[in-house]
Amino acid sequence: MILFFQLAATGLALGGIYAIVAVGFSLTFATSRTVNFSQGQSAMIGAVLYYWLRMTLGVQPVLAFLVVILAGAVLGLVIALTAIFPFVRSQSRTEHGWLLSTIALGIVLENIALFTFGSEARALPPMFSDKPIAVLGIGILPHELTLIVAAIGMAIIVDLLLYRTLYGKIFRAVATNPPASRLIGIDSSRMIAVSYALSTSLAAAAGVLIAPLVNVSASMGTIIGIKAFAIAAVSGMLRPVSIFILGLCFGIVESLVAGYLGLGARDTMAFGSLILLLAWRPFGFSERWQRQV
């Protein structure tokens, strides 16, 4: 039973990470009906940058974290400008130029990391002490606790931003009908750029948070990105809060499966259930992806 809760706690932390990245997907989807297939690589860039700032330059953790978030925002703007705008305007129902361009960007980002950082995985010491705190008889790393708190915080902030502010309303207006929102004076390109900046800095922050748990490496991004997108897709690009809950559930189940059945079973189960869920409800648990007649 101790093992069960131990696994669940680790899963909760990992699920929080996936959820943060998944919320990023829903943001860009909200403004432009596009998602960034290099989101996982953005998380990796965040982790690599943080590692460099901390270990090579010796920058304070909090300062380094802020720099990474800022850098993430800049990266997001670059992604929006180079990989999204050229395609979002000429977008017809069936063209996925943005899909391919973000995949290409992801490959390039991974390469940059490979050349500058090297191909080996490196361990990053946690932000705080690495002594587990005993909570209800199970040991939780302080870092894992921070992670869960940070994830909850980000999800709530993004949710409030989207559903409780004028800005969020504009966001969603752009998503529903870009030409119409342009007509009433919304700069839809700017909103798309902002959504990408936000989404990428969320991913970069997630990368920093997950780094002490999985080691920093150039190839760490792919699987994070895919799993987060899977969560976003299954939730139907829904409200951040529901994505978040789904992400936590996913993290727990994944961790339990890995703990009891082995690592190989983990990915097979995760992606097998993804395929089944998509076959059952192609638009996830919402109708927002429904094609229009």
Binding site: L99, I226, F229, A230, A233, F271, G272, I275, W289
Partner: peptide, 19 residues
């Protein structure tokens, strides 16, 4: 998975490759 298209279809095929 005939109801999937675009990004979701790509995602499902990624899942296929990994499985």
């Amino acid at each position: 998975l005939h109801r999937l298209s675009g990004a979701q279809f790509a995602l499902a095929t990624v899942a296929l490759a990994i499985i």
